[in-house]
């Protein structure tokens, strides 16, 4: 028996990024769920991004697993963004009437990072906003 490799979980800009590549066995998916919740606890990220651009297909099981991961993360106070669905995968998902409720979706990793970033200037403390040099010629 070959020891199934784990899906890597990396940190970037305060987010956890899970990049799923290729086909996963159900066992690997199960392992991923544990790893993600473990990482959320130990690294206290701002958000969780599941990058699916390297996934060849999403079947009912993997879809369900991603939903579960997102719901678990939300319970723990972490927002989840799913990104990078290939067009063909998205089409198949729609035809199968499968959804991933409870997550925001983004076109790609970059957009997902943007989405989860606390950008709104209104939300920043005033002193921080004032420090931003505004060099627009008026």
């Amino acid at each position: 028996m070959i020891q199934a490799s784990r899906v890597p979980i990396v940190g970037l800009f305060g987010n956890l990024i899970v990049s799923v590549q290729g086909g996963l066995t159900d066992g690997q998916v199960e392992q991923l769920r544990e790893d993600v919740t473990g990482s959320i606890e130990s690294r206290s990220p701002r958000g969780l991004i599941v990058d699916l651009s390297g996934v060849e297909i999403l079947d009912s099981y993997l879809t369900r697993a991603i939903r579960d991961i997102a719901l678990t993360a939300r319970l723990m106070g972490v927002r989840t963004a799913v990104c990078g669905l290939r067009p063909a995968v998205a089409i198949a998902l729609v035809e199968m009437d499968l959804e991933i409720p409870g997550v925001v979706t983004a076109l790609n990793l970059e957009r997902a990072v943007e989405m989860l970033a606390p950008v709104d200037e209104d939300e920043l403390p005033d002193e921080l906003v004032n420090e931003v040099p505004n060099e627009e010629p008026s």
Partner: peptide, 26 residues
Amino acid sequence: RELCIEQMVSDVLLTKIVTAISELGR
């Protein structure tokens, strides 16, 4: 997937076929 590629199947059809195999196999 291999068979689909040989048959020049489009990516969308290929994805559907491979998804079906995955469901039935599971």
